[in-house]
Design a protein around this nucleic acid. Structure first.
Length: 969
RNA sequence: GCUCUGGUGGUGGAAUGGUAGACACGAGGGACUUAAAAUCCCUUGCCCGCAAGGGCGUGUGGGUUCAAGUCCCACCCGGAGUACCA
């Protein structure tokens, strides 16, 4: 019988669906199977559909999920869609097509493509982030974040109501909580505050909070963006310029979790590189906070002290400011101070003489685009304020400068500059001719003249010099000694800073989750949880309004009726019972942060997910997806999960136990070469004498086979090639090739449907795995797919011997020979090992070796072929299912039992030893498996080949049983 | 700049200190066929040699070891992340 994949694959896909083969129940049934959760990062359904790179991870995880199921696990393997997003909305702005319509269409296309590949997804659990039944819980979580604060003393999120109770009883006394700004007030103060004032104070602590912050504003997209959505001053989506802008926005206080996010990395089984990406992004650094006094006396600064509890923009009392340093040991080398241009102190300390210069600089620096600033990092700029600070340890007078190399968002926005030991301070000092003082030397007491240096000495090694009481100490000791002294003096303390900023959570866009928030007198209130979901309203336009409001400003029915607890027309807003609703929507990462939990209990309309469901599944055992989510989704999801863990909902603090990054599939482009001398002449690659004589032109990889161009289809491809002439080699036009990004513009996009149609899903699955290690980036090259397809045909043919009764006269081949059993057991062992370590490419090779050997042996034994079909089932489920049924089984091969190998079957009587002389392999020698070193040596001496290499008695003999013999002479 | 990765035939890759190049692709040769497709067989790291055989080979240079693609040190090149984070 022929291997007719195009008939059998759809047939089994239909059967699986009808039989509900991939339906999964929580609890695993009466037999109490152990649970296992395999998850793929769900896709954004783009209009382009899947290309061959997308399914790579899905295939790997599908193999693993199917394998685990065969091993007796109850495996959760769901799929869904990250359906909110910019492209559908941009398309809506251009065409007026509602993003919901585009999204629906794209999802249908994705589903069709996914179905063809034969995944074992339980589609009954599908989630879509844009589905109100789903985003109800995204909104719900937001409300919980709003209603909680982070208490540092217990190290977890606590209800905001407890904070209110505390304020009423003791004010801020003894409070250690994550906040935007340190506040200090008494119980009496609190009790005297009105509702608005209290709400303002609470906002300072909420985990989801509204605040004026510098945000990444992208004018072209009309929205703010989170830090991970901006790279090099440009938006990740679309590549539009981004500027810094002070705006009132929702943020999530993820920084409260920074330490736990670092610590949690110790518990998970992720690649070092991904953990490193997260560590860098979180950017933990230990150091000291030190207060510097501004020199007083020259001029008197008048300012009314901030009233207790007032949300002033001032952090510290006027005459001192706080700096953060990781090098407290270098405090004796401070020769100037630098404030960021946004620093609140600038106005009050600048001397009249410097005023105009400072103001000009600050204005210039603030208006600079982020991109400009980043591009000109090497250019030093700054201005002297005229004011001086006092070094608390030396009592020296130190000039205070302003420069944009100090960032407002990190630490306190102010630094002590130690030009000798910090490259940025060094560059600044050189530029403005400020003194440089060496306070660290590599060897004890050996100093040189810093004016001769070409660069600063930044390393945290060596000894302190010129440093008062720490002189002569090692850098590490000096750090500790200085902090101790500073703490004694009460002018600073050790502290930890994180680079991780709070996540800006508002987007001025339409296609996202609405905030369940309305405003009373500009104070935000959450709509009652029972009223969720707050559904995305219809709008007349997807663009911002004429007054610059987000698209939801166009929605007519968009106001909250507090009394009737429903959404009403905004014309009814009276700010007494009917209030305006929030106009921003949530960002992409809102819906993708907790979706893995929702899969556990996807249709629950009472809760996010039931306690039973999460008790059963716990967390994701294996998560497969791209490393590009290292600083976005994977941080947010971990934060989200930790918050839900604090609420007692998530059972594990880390959501994704093991994580595998699938490598990017790069494109492999083909080129034709047009002669520069003759515009219609295309020269085959091998005939080009000088590359300068030709112009390489991208050519569609679909009209190229094994780098040979189909010249007829090329002429039809585009009108300008209609009259093309060719210079052929051996009658063929050979194209050049190069590895590039897979993209439409390079005509190197490979669509999985075409390959499924041509070779079948099983071939595609095997080939994607065969290409190389899953984690590694690799170019897509269809050239090798034939080999895998040939293998499947051969595999199929093997079963003829077993199944075909008319030819079955030859009973001998139906008997299982020891040889065949041995091959089978070797295969079981290797394939099991390979799957366990996610080495799917070598597993496929092992199958090839197995089938080649069994074919040579003419094996037709059921005893061998039946388990082999099970082994193949995770990789090529369709053909395995077909053969399984042809062998007479009634149930699905998915529910078979994974074969165990028998060590006894693998025992060899003899071992072929490589014999080395002085480490060089010279010949092979077959010895009994039980041979001792002595016997081996005798045999080597007796071997005729040895004569040439043996010079007298060996000096040393290395004998590694079953591995090698090495004679040293 | 910093961090992480990777560097092995014409190509994708294999080799968990023990025969470097498994398994495939491509290429060359052959069988079957009127022919083609399909299928099957042989050769295929480089160099010397008719052959037997030998030499050289895993980015470069050192080192550890009986033995190094694999471990250590220094460097070169590619890819990714990040970027004035004090």
């Amino acid at each position: 019988m022929e291997y007719n994949f195009s008939e059998l694959e759809p047939r089994w896909q239909k059967w699986w669906k009808e039989e509900g083969v991939y339906h999964v129940e929580n609890g695993g049934g009466a037999e109490g199977r152990p649970h296992f959760y395999v998850l793929d990062m769900f896709p954004y359904p783009s209009g382009a559909g899947l290309h061959v790179g997308h399914p790579l991870g899905y295939i790997a995880s599908d193999i693993y999920a199917r394998y685990k199921r065969l091993k007796g696990y109850n495996v959760l393997h769901p799929m869904g869609y990250d359906a909110y997003g910019l492209p559908a909305e941009q398309y809506a702005i251009q065409t007026g097509q509602h993003p919901a319509v585009t999204t629906e269409k794209n999802i249908a296309r994705y589903r069709e493509q996914l179905d063809k590949i034969g995944f074992s997804f339980d589609w009954d659990r599908e989630v879509r982030t844009c589905d109100p039944k789903y985003y109800k819980w995204t909104q719900w979580t937001f409300i919980q974040l709003f209603k909680h604060y982070y208490d540092n003393t217990v190290g977890k999120a606590m209800p905001i109501a407890q904070l209110e109770a505390r304020f009423a009883k003791q004010g801020t006394e003894g409070l250690d909580a994550a906040c935007t700004e340190e506040l200090s007030f008494s119980a009496d103060d609190w009790n005297s505050y009105d509702e608005n004032r209290r709400q303002q104070v609470l906002m300072n602590y909420r985990l989801a909070y509204l605040a004026d912050t510098y945000v990444n504003w992208c004018a072209d997209l009309g929205t703010v963006l989170a830090n991970d959505e901006v790279v090099g001053g440009l938006s990740v989506r679309g590549g539009y310029p981004v500027e810094r802008k002070l705006m009132r926005q929702w943020s999530l206080r993820i920084s409260a979790y920074a330490q736990r996010l670092v610590d949690g990395l110790e518990q998970v089984d992720w690649t070092d590189s991904l953990k490193e990406i997260q560590r860098n992004w979180i950017g933990r650094s230990e150091g000291a906070a030190v207060y510097f006094q501004v020199e007083s006396g020259k001029r008197k600064v008048e300012r009314e002290a901030a009233a207790p509890g007032e949300l002033s923009t001032f952090h510290s009392p006027l005459s001192t400011f706080e700096i953060f340093t990781t090098r407290p040991d270098t405090i004796f080398g401070v020769t100037f101070m630098v404030l960021c241009p946004e620093h609140e102190l600038i106005d009050s300390i600048t001397t009249p003489e410097q005023k105009s210069e400072v103001e000009a600089y600050v204005t210039w620096a603030k208006n600079r685009s982020e991109r400009e600033r980043q591009a000109e990092v090497k250019k030093v700029s700054g201005v002297f304020t005229g004011a001086y600070a006092i070094n608390p340890l030396t009592e020296e007078k130190i000039p205070i400068w302003v420069s944009d190399y100090v960032l407002a968002g990190y630490g306190t926005g102010a630094i002590m500059a130690v030009p000798a030991h910090d490259s940025r301070d060094f560059a600044f000092a050189r530029h403005f001719n400020l003194p440089i003082r060496q306070v660290v030397s590599l060897e004890k007491d050996v100093t040189s003249d810093p004016s001769t240096w070409t660069e600063s000495m930044d390393a945290k090694t060596g000894y302190s010099v010129n440093s008062g009481f720490v002189s002569g100490m090692k850098v590490k000791e000096a750090m500790k000694a200085v902090i101790d002294r500073i703490e004694e003096m009460g002018i600073g303390h050790r502290t930890v800073n994180f680079r991780l900023r709070d996540a800006i959570f508002s987007r001025q866009r339409y296609w996202g989750e609405p905030f369940p928030i309305y405003y009373k007198d500009n104070v935000p209130y959450t709509i009652p949880e029972e009223c969720l979901p707050l559904e995305l309203p219809e709008v007349s336009e997807f663009k911002p309004t004429a007054t610059g409001e987000p698209p939801l400003g166009h929605a007519q029915k968009w106001a909250w009726d507090e009394k009737n607890r429903c959404v009403v027309d905004k014309a009814l807003v009276d700010n007494r019972t009917v209030f305006p609703l929030e106009l921003s929507t949530m960002p992409g990462f809102a819906g993708s942060s907790g979706y893995y939990l929702r899969y556990m209990d996807p249709t629950n309309d009472k809760e996010y997910f039931s306690a039973d469901a999460v008790d059963y599944w716990q967390n994701v055992d294996l998560y497969v997806g791209g490393a590009e989510h290292g600083t976005g989704h994977l941080i947010y999801a971990r934060f989200w999960n930790k918050f839900l863990f604090d609420l007692g909902m998530a059972k594990k603090e880390e959501p994704f136990q093991k994580l595998i990054n699938q490598g990017m599939i790069q494109g492999r482009s083909n080129f034709v070469y047009r002669s520069k001398a003759d515009n219609n002449l295309y020269i085959s690659k091998g005939l080009i004498k000088n590359m300068d004589d030709v112009t390489p032109i991208h050519v569609d990889i679909n009209i190229v086979d094994n780098d040979v161009l189909d010249v007829e289809r090329f002429r039809e491809w585009r009108p300008e090639f209609k009259e093309a002439r060719f210079e052929l080699e051996d009658g063929k036009y050979v194209c050049g090739w190069e590895v590039e990004k897979m993209s439409k513009s390079m005509y190197n996009v490979q669509n999985p449907d075409d390959l499924v149609a041509r070779y079948g899903a099983d071939t595609l699955r095997l080939y994607e795995m065969f290409l190389g290690p899953v984690e590694q980036a690799k170019p897509w090259d269809t050239n090798g797919i034939e080999g895998v397809h040939r293998f499947l045909k051969k595999f199929w043919k093997l079963y003829d011997n077993c199944l075909n009764e008319s030819q079955g006269a030859d009973q001998a081949i139906k008997q299982s020979s020891n040889q065949a059993l041995k091959v089978l057991h070797q295969t079981i062992k290797k394939v099991t090992d390979d799957i366990e370590r996610f080495s799917f490419n070598t597993a496929v090779s092992t199958f090839m070796i197995c089938v080649n050997t069994l074919t040579e042996q003419k094996c037709g034994s059921r005893e061998v072929l039946k388990p082999l079909a099970v082994l193949m089932a995770p990789f090529a489920p369709h053909v395995a299912e077909e053969l399984w049924h042809q062998l007479g089984e009634k149930g699905s091969v998915c529910d078979a039992e994974w074969p165990e190998y028998d060590e006894k079957m693998l025992v060899e009587d003899t071992v072929k030893y490589p014999v080395q002389f002085n480490g060089k392999m010279r010949f092979m020698l077959e010895l009994p498996a039980a041979a001792t070193q002595q016997e081996a040596l005798e045999a080597v001496k007796a071997a005729p080949e040895s004569a040439k290499w043996m010079t007298g008695e060996p000096k040393k003999v290395i004998f590694v049983p079953k591995k090698i013999i090495n004679i040293v002479c």
